[in-house]
Structure formats: structure tokens, C-alpha cells
Design a protein around this nucleic acid. Sequence first.
DNA 1: AGCATGCATAGACGTATGTCAATATAGACG
DNA 2: CGTCTATATTGACATACGTCTATGCATGCT
Lengths: 113, 113
Amino acid sequence: MELLQILECSPPLTREPLDAEQAAGVARVFKALGDPVRLRILSIVASREGGEVCVCDITGAFELSQPTISHHLKVLKEVDLLTSERRASWVYYRLVPETLGELSALLGVPATV
Amino acid sequence: MELLQILECSPPLTREPLDAEQAAGVARVFKALGDPVRLRILSIVASREGGEVCVCDITGAFELSQPTISHHLKVLKEVDLLTSERRASWVYYRLVPETLGELSALLGVPATV
DNA sequence: AGCATGCATAGACGTATGTCAATATAGACG
DNA sequence: CGTCTATATTGACATACGTCTATGCATGCT
């Protein structure tokens, strides 16, 4: 089953308990978010006007090796938080807003009536 | 700095990049959510009518040892997702909805206008 | 064709994490 | 007080993870 589908089928945490399969899928995404470098990478891509960021822009923002950044980008891609596209020599990463939205909904606390 | 304060000060990922300190704080919380067992525990507590769950209720829901459940509860407590209170022989866990709400806001995608 | 550049992959290494069995602690109750 | 029950802590172990260096693979350029 696709990860985004699992997120779509998972009820908000405050509504009912997750079953094991839902929890496993959701946990994969949160685990990807559970690293400071990946969070910063994601926020760089997500907040970028135009929505696209070249890998070189990201690498320049950290004092980490290029392979390390590449590794983190791969992790974010594997959980459908980012997509990438190669154009000419450069690879551009983009946010997948649906995934972020599903996570937000999952955590959302129902408005106090 | 307190964790909840860091969450309150952190802008939505789609608005601007997180700085290193914000990312470190936020990552701690997401890391706690990045385990299937903890997610299920959290959803059990969060979705419970009355808001309180006794540890024994949680232990009974998993085929894991009692110390393992206790460990996961501790992790969730350390990132301010849960609080606990002892009454008589039992310990009751409660959701901290503010933390969940801050996380949700952090991930929220601005409505498409 | 050959080289330079941008990014990905492979492998190695230390540290962190999830789990358990064993033990400790705290409260209830005889 | 002693003991039972509910939960927490400790220590051990295997596995996963973040990082690096070295290398591979495209693409563009001369």
C-alpha cells in the first residue's frame, strides 16, 4: 500500500486509535521528520518561493558533506515528503504538500467548541 | 528553553526555514512520534473519552513487555506529548493537546486561495 | 573523445534506539 | 511489618541511523 494512501486512511490521533498498519506507515514519515537536518532541508524547500530548490542550494546551507545531504534528501523522498526532477546538470527538489497536509490533519486537535 | 516554547516560536515549515535550534527542538518531538508503538500509545490516550488512560490498559493492548511500554511512555512524556499522574496504585497518562496542536500548525499547509 | 561538474551510491564506523530479563520502588492491604 | 500489585529503572544486546571518504554516473563543454 502506498504511503500517502495510508496517511489518507488514518484517522486523527484524537479520534480513534491507529491500527498497527496505519501506525507503521505514519511512523515512517515522522521518523523522517525526526532529524534536525532533514527538518531544516524540508523547511528550506517548503518555504521557497517557486517551490523548487536545487541540491546545491541546500548543500551550501549546511556544514555537512554532499553525500550526507544527498542521503537526507533520499529519506525525505522515500516518505513522499519531497519529489525530485533532473533538469540539465541540476536536480531540483519540490515539496509534496499533500503529505504535509495529511500529517497536519492527523495531529490536529479538534477545535474546542 | 522549554520544548513547548520552541514549538510555539517555530514558524510553519512552509513559511520560512527553521533555524538550527528550532529544528533541534522540533526534531525531538517528531522523533518521539517516529515509532509505531508510540504512535499507537499516543492515539490510545488521545482518543480516550475522559482523556485518561491507566498504564495497565496500554500494556494490555500490545504484545510487548511492561518495561518496554514504560520506556515508550517516558519518551512521550519527555517531549511533552503526555503527562502522568499517580493515583493510588495506578498511574494515569493524559494527552497534552497544546503540543499536538503546535505540531499540526507547524506542518499545516496554508489553504489554497 | 575527454574532462569538469553536480549529484548519487557504497562501504565503514561510532552512536542511538527498541527490546528484554532482572531488579527496584511505591502504594495498598492484611 | 510483610507481601502483593502496579509501574519504573537498569543493564545487556542486536539493529538502525547519521556521518564520512571514496567512487560511480550523468550531463555539459571544449
